[in-house]
Nucleic acid binder design. Structure first.
Lengths: 193, 193
DNA sequence: TTAGTTTTGTACTGAACAGTACATAATGGT
DNA sequence: ACCATTATGTACTGTTCAGTACAAAACTAA
């Protein structure tokens, strides 16, 4: 009973996510957003609210996709060690259309916005905690199957692995020596032995 | 033979560095800078050039201080393992007036500016390489003294340690569970065994 | 066809931004 | 004492920013 929307909301949000991912929050202008999303300014405001609300929605979408992707990848691995290796390599590699030089939107947000905005502080912390729980669960399974030592303390090790992954995501933004980064990944998974 | 400068250049640059460290590049306005530095706009421009030049100078100052501080700390340690532990704990702890929630200015720059500005890409990469070399050198000494295994591959391990430190610096910006972070540090130094 | 409703496109708003012109003030050299 | 030179403080520039007013357009229900 009214004029129908001419754009797909989910598709537009995905485009916004991509722009924020590439440029960061502050450096992204509303003109950047509207042109990438293919919509006009009033449509953006009526659908997503202001810039910060849109960013929050884009970040949530990113986190949701990222967590699902990581979980699937972890579960596809034949062993705990292989799972962790796949996870860390996924941060570094260009497979799946992933662009390592963009880092991770949640990590980028942790750096740019978390210190000055409590909402993002919590959101990004929870995101990291959730990934840590996924890794921890993989480690527990590895212990149960006998693959990993029973003396291994899964919470701390999972935390160390995810912290390393955060470091990897950031390091990839400075165009590093890939060989050295891959060797570092090999070192980190030695923690599972 | 002219009116003398009424402010200390080094002190003003330190103040600018602090503001950029706290707020990031984009979110820092020239008014933020002039008020923190205690100088007027034309003095800033005549002394430091434009905003980007000032940031570059502040970043260089930070890197210089940071490298010197880390080197001193590493050399003060009684063993390689103690040195690496001191290094990682230094990223996490609030000692020395350090505020872990600000992270590291070079790491922050890697996230915010490196992807879109080649100069900063290179600068931050070199910074990380330099710290990696310091750690590598500590590891080599540890091997020579017999503290560390001779089979240990110092370049990759040093890289892994610094990447982990980058992850720690970022993680500290999301107000994490400190106990868990410290446990993660304990895991990382297990790589030296 | 028409009334009611929501979206769209254009064009605007005031505020904040980085950077600068210019007059005044403060020094050292002569 | 006075001039050349450099720093300072004020006030301004044009531009870009996030956000919005408004009218035209596109639809449904009756």
């Amino acid at each position: 009973m009214a004029r129908p929307r001419e754009f797909d909301e989910h598709q537009a949000l995905t485009a916004a996510m991509q722009v924020f991912w590439e440029k960061g929050y502050e450096a992204t202008s509303l003109s950047d957003l509207t042109s990438a999303m293919g919509i006009q300014r009033p449509s953006l405001y009526s659908t997503f609210g202001d810039k910060e609300s849109l960013f929050q929605a884009a970040l949530s979408l990113y986190a949701e996709r990222s967590l699902a992707f990581i979980q699937k990848k972890l579960e596809s691995a034949p062993s705990a060690k292989a799972a962790v290796l796949l996870y860390l390599q996924g941060v570094v590699s260009s497979a799946d259309g992933h662009r390592p030089e963009l880092g991770c939107l949640c990590v980028n947000t942790m750096v740019e916005l978390a210190p000055h905005h409590q909402g993002f502080t919590q959101f990004t912390r929870v995101y990291q905690q959730q990934i840590t729980e996924l890794i921890q669960s993989i480690l527990e399974k590895g212990k149960q199957s006998g693959e990993l030592s029973e003396t291994l303390y899964a919470p701390a090790l999972a935390s160390a692995i995810v912290i390393s992954a955060v470091g990897l995501a950031v390091t990839m933004k400075s165009n590093p020596d890939i060989t050295l980064v891959e060797q570092a990944v090999q070192q980190i998974i030695l923690l599972l032995d």
